[in-house]
Lab assay of single mutants.
Amino acid sequence: MGFKLLSKLLVYLTASIMAIASPLAFSVDSSGEYPTVSEIPVGEVRLYQIADGVWSHIATQSFDGAVYPSNGLIVRDGDELLLIDTAWGAKNTAALLAEIEKQIGLPVTRAVSTHFHDDRVGGVDVLRAAGVATYASPSTRRLAEVEGNEIPTHSLEGLSSSGDAVRFGPVELFYPGAAHSTDNLIVYVPSASVLYGGCAIYELSRTSAGNVADADLAEWPTSIERIQQHYPEAQFVIPGHGLPGGLDLLKHTTNVVKAHTNRSVVE
């Protein structure tokens, strides 16, 4: 069995187990497998329904001669939608809004960016022009300005110390501490036991640490421990890039980060 097929099978099995364990909360999309990078042309966006009122959005972007996937989250909030992270750029984010209108038909009224990198804030200006209120932590807003990236308009308070959590509509926002970046936030959907790890969490097929220019490698494993301790009931975990899975993604990420750190020390 090929690795790609095995990865998709694991996603399907995880979703099936969740649907059985929580039949009222989960209505997993039966329309197909989780979209992969090879299936999404740059400039297009796919939506994948995880649970009743919960979707991931998947886009792709060219970077350094390669094409990478990027995940975000959409959560229903009454007759409105909360968006977590842009679709990595203005063109993708405009396509995301169009796809949401086509498939869901509810307005996106608020959006949260989970850290300051372009795959999370690139497209904020498109959201703002569409009347979406954009939010991020003060740290993310400051770092985005320093980096020359787009800056969300509103500040999220109460997320300055490791372990801080605040309720934001249908989700809980959690600051686990520094990891992929010093400002990275985690998003949890309690009604569906869905954990969105953003770039602080890796997919299972990833074996290298990737972009760690703004990471705190020493603190990252401790931050992941905080996530595990705060959300032990999480059933569906979405990484910032690639295929979702279960809580095993947290341990896998820790292993990859520690291996990278150990290699760096040896070198």
Rank of each mutant, 00 (worst) to 15 (best):
A215P: 04
G210E: 08
K251N: 11
Q49P: 04
R167H: 04
G210Y: 05
W88T: 10
S208N: 14
V54F: 02
K102T: 15
G89H: 14
I186T: 13
P23S: 11
E150L: 15
S139M: 06
E99L: 14
A144G: 09
V42N: 15
G169P: 04
N211C: 11
N262D: 11
L159A: 05
A259M: 05
P239N: 08
M1N: 14
G240L: 01
D77Y: 07
H241T: 00
T60L: 14
L24C: 06
V28R: 07
I84Q: 00
A111F: 04
T114P: 00
P69V: 06
L5S: 14
T60W: 04
V108L: 13
I224R: 01
Y12A: 14
V189F: 08
V108Y: 09
K8E: 12
L247C: 15
G122Y: 02
G2Q: 07
K4F: 15
G32T: 03
S139T: 14
D79L: 15
E267A: 13
M18H: 02
S181W: 00
V146E: 08
S139R: 09
A200M: 10
S264H: 11
G53N: 04
I201E: 00
L5Q: 11
G65V: 11
R206I: 09
H230D: 08
R110I: 02
G32S: 13
V187Q: 00
S139H: 08
I104L: 10
P69G: 05
Y34C: 10
E44L: 12
E33K: 09
I201C: 11
E39T: 09
W55Y: 04
A15F: 03
S31M: 07
S161M: 06
I227E: 01
I50H: 15
V108F: 08
D79Q: 04
W220C: 03
L6I: 05
V194S: 08
E203Q: 15
A95D: 06
D64V: 12
A87E: 00
V75K: 10
K251G: 09
A111N: 15
G78D: 08
A129F: 02
A87Y: 01
A178E: 10
N255K: 15
V194Q: 01
D29F: 11
L204T: 06
E99Q: 15
T254A: 08
L6S: 12
D77V: 07
L195V: 06
V112M: 08
E157Q: 08
